[in-house]
Design a protein around this nucleic acid. Structure first.
Length: 322
DNA sequence: AACTTCTTCAACCGCCTACCG
DNA sequence: CCGGTAGGCGGTTGAAGAAGT
C-alpha cells in the first residue's frame, strides 16, 4: 500500500499552465485566497489541476511582487553566503531575497551561480602549458594540521572534519577528519561498501563501491576501491596519518610558474588549490571575484575542525564547506 | 540549412513535518 | 499519544529554445 495520492491523477491536467488557467487561479486567489486548503482550491476555482500544482504556480509565478530576471550582484552574494552556511535550504535563502522564490534561486544556483562561483579553473591556464602531469595518486592526510600531502607538496583540507560512520574504525583521526561521506546506513566494514566523496562545493568528486582489503578486530584498516571512472582509490589509516586516495589529480603550471593541483571527477569540474610564489597553498581564483573572500571567511569561521558537528541523520545533505 | 548538443527553468515527484481531531 | 492529512520543501525531469557544428 502506497501513500494516498493528493489528487486524482487521472483527472487532473499536467504540464505547462495556459494563460486561461493562470487567469482563473489569479482571479480566484485575489478574491478568496486559499481558504486554508490548497487541495480543495482547484475545484472551487474551476481548475482541473492538482492543489499542489496550483500552490506552486501561485507561489512561483502568479503571486504579486514576484521578481523575474537577472539576479543582482548583491543577490548573488547573499545566495552564496547563505548556501555556504546553511546549504541548499532554498526556502530560507529565498526568505532573504524579497520577490525571489526558492525554485528560482535553486535553478539559478544550479545553472549559473555554481558555475560562476566554482568555474572550471583550467580555463584560467593556457592549454599548451597546462597538462604537465596526470597521475593517479594517493594523498596523505595529516591529522595534526589538517592538510593533505603528496610526496612533494601539500594542500589544504577539502573540508572540515565531521563525525560519521567511520567511528567504527580504529584511527581516531577518521572521526575527526573524514572527508569521505559514506551512506549513513552503512559502515565501512564489509566486503563491499558504498561511499561518496564530496568536494568543497558539495559536488560529488567520486563515489562507488569500496571493498575492505584487510580488517582486524572489526576495524577496517585499508580500503581499495574503484571509482566510477575506474581510477583506483586507496584508503588506509595509521597512527596519525591516513592515506586518502584521490582518484585523480592533475598538475598544471601557470605562466608565472605557479603550480596548481586539481582533483577532478571527470563530470563535475575541478576543485583547485594553488601554490603561490611564497610557497603557500591556497584556493585557486574563481571567476566570481566579488564577495568570495567574505564567503570563504564566513565558512572558515563556521566550520572549524573543532566546532563542526556532523549530524549523521543528515548525512545525505550536501552541506558545503571549503 | 539541418542536425546535434547544451542550457534553462517551469513543473512534477515524493519525502518530511506540522497540525488537527 | 497516535494516525491521517495537507503544506512545504528539495531533488529531479523534460520541453523548449539557444548555441554549436
Amino acid at each position: 500500500m502506497g501513500r494516498a495520492p493528493c489528487c486524482d491523477k487521472a483527472s487532473v491536467k499536467k504540464g505547462p499552465w495556459s494563460p486561461e488557467e493562470d487567469a482563473k487561479l489569479k482571479d480566484y486567489m485575489e478574491k478568496n485566497g486559499t481558504g486554508g486548503n490548497w487541495i480543495a482550491l482547484p475545484q472551487k476555482a474551476g481548475l482541473r489541476r492538482c492543489g499542489k500544482s496550483c500552490r506552486l504556480r501561485w507561489l512561483n509565478y502568479l503571486r504579486p511582487n514576484i521578481k523575474h530576471g537577472e539576479f543582482s550582484d548583491d543577490e548573488d552574494r547573499i545566495i552564496c553566503t547563505l548556501f555556504a552556511s546553511i546549504g541548499s535550504r532554498w526556502s530560507i535563502i529565498a526568505a532573504q531575497l524579497p520577490g525571489r522564490t526558492d525554485n528560482d534561486i535553486k535553478n539559478y544556483w544550479n545553472t549559473k551561480l555554481k558555475k560562476k562561483l566554482f568555474g572550471r579553473v583550467q580555463s584560467q591556464t593556457k592549454p599548451h602549458q597546462n597538462q604537465i602531469h596526470h597521475a593517479t595518486s594517493t594523498l596523505l592526510y595529516n591529522c595534526s594540521n589538517n592538510t593533505y600531502q603528496t610526496p612533494a607538496t601539500s594542500f589544504s583540507c577539502f573540508g572540515p572534519p565531521y563525525s560519521s560512520t567511520f567511528s567504527n574504525t580504529s584511527a581516531s583521526c577518521l572521526t575527526a577528519t573524514s572527508i569521505l561521506q559514506p551512506q549513513p546506513q552503512e559502515s565501512l566494514v564489509g566486503p563491499v561498501q558504498h561511499y561518496q566523496l564530496h568536494d568543497n562545493n558539495g559536488v560529488r568528486i567520486f563515489g562507488g563501491e569500496a571493498s575492505c582489503c584487510s580488517s582486524s578486530d572489526g576495524s577496517c584498516s585499508n580500503i581499495q576501491t574503484s571509482a566510477g571512472n575506474n581510477r583506483e582509490l586507496e584508503y588506509s589509516d595509521g597512527d596519525h596519518h591516513q592515506q586518502v586516495g584521490i582518484h585523480s589529480y592533475d598538475e598544471f603550471y601557470s605562466d608565472e610558474g605557479q603550480k596548481l593541483i586539481m582533483a577532478s571527477d571527470g563530470d563535475h569540474g575541478w576543485s583547485g588549490h594553488q601554490k603561490s610564489p611564497n610557497g603557500l597553498w591556497g584556493e585557486t581564483e574563481t571567476p566570481l571575484d566579488y564577495g568570495i573572500e567574505e564567503i570563504k571567511q564566513l565558512i572558515s569561521t563556521t566550520s572549524s575542525c573543532n566546532s563542526f558537528v556532523f549530524d549523521e541523520n543528515k548525512a545525505d545533505e550536501n552541506v558545503m564547506y571549503y
